[in-house]
Design a protein around this nucleic acid. Structure first.
Lengths: 197, 197
DNA sequence: GTCTATACTGCGATAGAC
DNA sequence: GTCTATCGCAGTATAGAC
């Protein structure tokens, strides 16, 4: 628990520590199998005290997702802004998403994918809306490449294939292995533009 | 519940109907949020009666996965056997996996992916072992293509990218839409061999 | 803002009759 | 093989003191 500072893109306030601990537990055991007692214990308070910070357990889950969406949308925007060519932008997007998904915000991102259905319909809708800016950044870059003739497949479908590829990475990618994150990004980029690494 | 016959690759015995109902509920609400009372109600018996067929709720989950692994391993084997070229085999594998994952065994397959961690470590190990034949069929075909120079990326990595692409499909693919399953298979195949549909 | 104590609910699983 | 009835437990959330 020592180095939870700013991990998951969440700041080091009491609320932030609670969210980081929750993200960690939700990813390890899933939302349903994580109890408020677990979360409380991992930040050193009693279970009843949780409800001073969040009204319900589900609100904690939503807050984790909200934070990570905001953090990574900003990162994606920066990634795109730093590149001028469409292909450079797509490479930057893939790198940024991989970074978020197997790197610094891995726990919260995995939670967003795997515990999505634990949100009420209303909160799912709200989170999807936050997420739409994030997706638009992808679609803009893919659309540009598509218009340049870099690939023939519909950009929407291509985005979904990429979502699958990056989203599955936490299940196998080893950050300490010989394959670097940038290597992997290039391999994925080649699936789109048809080069061959 | 009328047409649950042989859906999910499970036969129409009392046990089979129980497993189909469980697969449906597990996929809809997740394992943890599905109660034995839910499962019992959906086949028209009382909750206590469930435990005549299965010792624990977790055993039901394991049985669902066991059945779907066996069924789809057989399907994959047939798919490979019907093709002579490595590329034809890979296309057949992708089609078969898509069929299993968004088609007739969609519920059980989704459950296998999303509720994996709800199995005890011991049952996870057993299921992984069953699954290894399935994976070997993929690796053999990819290895052959790799040796022919059809792509440069490590076949193990390529398999993982494909796993991600097919595994994400249930979240967006519309079986009643204009994109057919075979279209999608060809689009995915092109991500591997570098053609451009 | 955290504590203690507890109300309330719903779960998995069992026992024994039929 | 299904029923009824119920046990024992764990979980979220609340109340009120400090």
């Amino acid at each position: 628990m020592a180095e939870s500072l700013a991990i998951n893109g969440i700041d080091d306030s009491p609320r932030g520590r609670l969210l980081s601990a929750a993200a960690h537990l939700f990813r390890d055991k899933g939302f349903d199998r994580t109890t408020v007692r677990d979360i409380a214990a991992s930040v050193g308070i009693q279970s009843g005290s949780i409800f001073h910070h969040f009204k319900t357990k589900e609100d904690i889950l939503y807050a984790v997702m909200e934070e990570v969406i905001h953090f990574n949308t900003a990162r994606l925007r920066d990634a795109v802004a730093a590149e001028s060519s469409a292909q450079g932008q797509l490479r930057a997007l893939i790198r940024a998403e991989l970074q978020s998904i197997v790197g610094d915000t891995a726990e919260a991102m995995t939670v967003m994918v795997t515990e999505w259905r634990c949100l009420s319909e209303e909160k799912q809708r709200k989170a999807l809306e936050l997420r739409s800016i994030y997706e638009q950044l992808w679609l803009d870059a893919l659309q540009a490449l598509h218009e340049q003739g870099a690939f023939k497949t519909d950009p929407f479908i291509m985005r979904r294939l990429l979502t699958g590829m990056t989203g599955w990475a936490p299940n196998w990618f080893d950050r300490d292995g010989s394959l670097t994150l940038d290597n992997l990004a290039d391999i994925m980029l080649a699936r789109v533009v048809g080069e061959n690494p």
